[in-house]
Design a protein around this nucleic acid. Structure first.
Lengths: 222, 222
DNA sequence: TAGATTGTTAATCGATTAACAATC
DNA sequence: TAGATTGTTAATCGATTAACAATC
């Protein structure tokens, strides 16, 4: 079947750097709301959280006139806007691939925003299939993936399998119709262009730290 | 006591972007070595792994003349060099803060390179202190942090506590003398300038995915 | 109206990529 | 020597920051 004609979406016009800052802004605003602040200027926000005021204004301006000149941004209104922009006003249903330590940790993770709900977890190990997480989600065999994705309306897959299995699992995830993947396995993965893949590779981050320790230790020019 | 005079280290001259690519290059070279390839040109490496040849050469050139003109890079020699540059020729001893799902997942994680060894895990929950991970590491109370860091020679801390506790825990970690921190908790953390902090905030990544799903769904200009 | 702060345009900065002289 | 490929300089690109006109 032919891909539907791809319209120009907001996501095409907004850089990845901007997008991830939107999440950060929302978290800052949550704190301000908690503290009872009603209105905030980009300057204040920047000073308070170590950001750049011009960047905040530019990032937000992508999405319309969200502030009021001479006044600033209404905290509650901006929070609502950001939640809507980030798609947090609807619940994204999440499936986890891999019921090892990491997969189970993610399934029980309590730090997810409203807007995300873990609804399924998959593995291939017969010893794991059928078990339940602490939250009461039953581990399914990955051969039930396609059907479960359709039935449960899963939007996002979290890849928590060993690096050696990751590409195969991602291929199955893509085949099941999922269009957004967050990968925790180290190494590069290939996905078709209509699928959005983000990777959080902490092994690379760890080796970056190791580099800093090493060059600190030696502390000399090349 | 006064901080020792800070010399200009390699880390000051090399961008973070370059540093994390070094890890990626090493992984690619591991694959080539596995496949029995002895020598590789930047062009070949780039084509094979979807990288840019000029960037590879520039990144590597920071660390001396690692290749041979007209020939390319000796795979084994470059691997050794990269391991040394990244500090993977010595073992970095790792302590984990937080013995919840994520902390235990990290403690049992099998994907760490040689060069990293998890030697301790800490929590404040009396119900957790004294238990052992599958790998046999005993969970210690965080009030033993300082002493354990000194005794075990811990170089790197992984923060796997809830966001609300993260800043307090990081302060203790810094006070214990650790200079490299990898943070898994969402939100910004403050550390003194001599400490290197990296954060892998998967909640921001997840919200970025949510944004793409949302703008895909709507698919219209602002 | 005067003061404040936005949205936006222009200037700066840094990182990526291309080009090429050096050299194996 | 001729061909290949590096290390490095120059050109391009994009992102960040500064400046300011619009406007509340």
């Amino acid at each position: 079947m032919p891909e539907p004609e791809k319209r120009a979406t907001l996501a095409d016009q907004v850089s990845e750097a901007t997008t991830s800052r939107l999440s950060v802004y929302l978290r800052c605003l949550d704190q301000l709301a908690e503290a009872g602040v009603a209105t905030v200027a980009s300057n204040t926000l920047a000073a308070r959280f170590g950001l750049n005021a011009a960047q905040i204004r530019k990032d937000l301006a992508h999405f319309g006139e969200l502030g009021v000149r001479g006044v600033g941004y209404d905290v509650e209104k901006l929070r609502r806007h950001l939640r809507e922009i980030l798609g947090l006003d609807r619940t994204s249903r999440v499936g986890i691939l891999g019921a090892g330590n990491l997969g189970l940790a993610l399934a029980d993770y309590s730090g997810f925003r409203d807007g995300f709900e873990v609804v399924a977890i998959f593995d291939t190990d017969p010893a794991k299939v059928g078990r339940r997480t602490r939250r009461g989600i039953t581990v399914r065999h990955i051969y039930e993936l396609r059907e479960t994705v359709a039935r449960e309306g899963i939007h996002i897959a979290l890849i928590a399998v060993p690096a050696t299995a990751a590409q195969d699992v991602v291929d199955l995830v893509v085949a099941s119709g999922i269009k957004a993947i967050l990968n925790f396995a180290p190494g590069a993965l290939r996905v078709p262009p209509h699928v959005k893949l983000k990777s959080v590779d902490f092994t690379v981050s760890l080796e970056t730290l190791s580099f800093f320790l090493a060059s600190d230790r030696d502390g000399n020019q090349p």
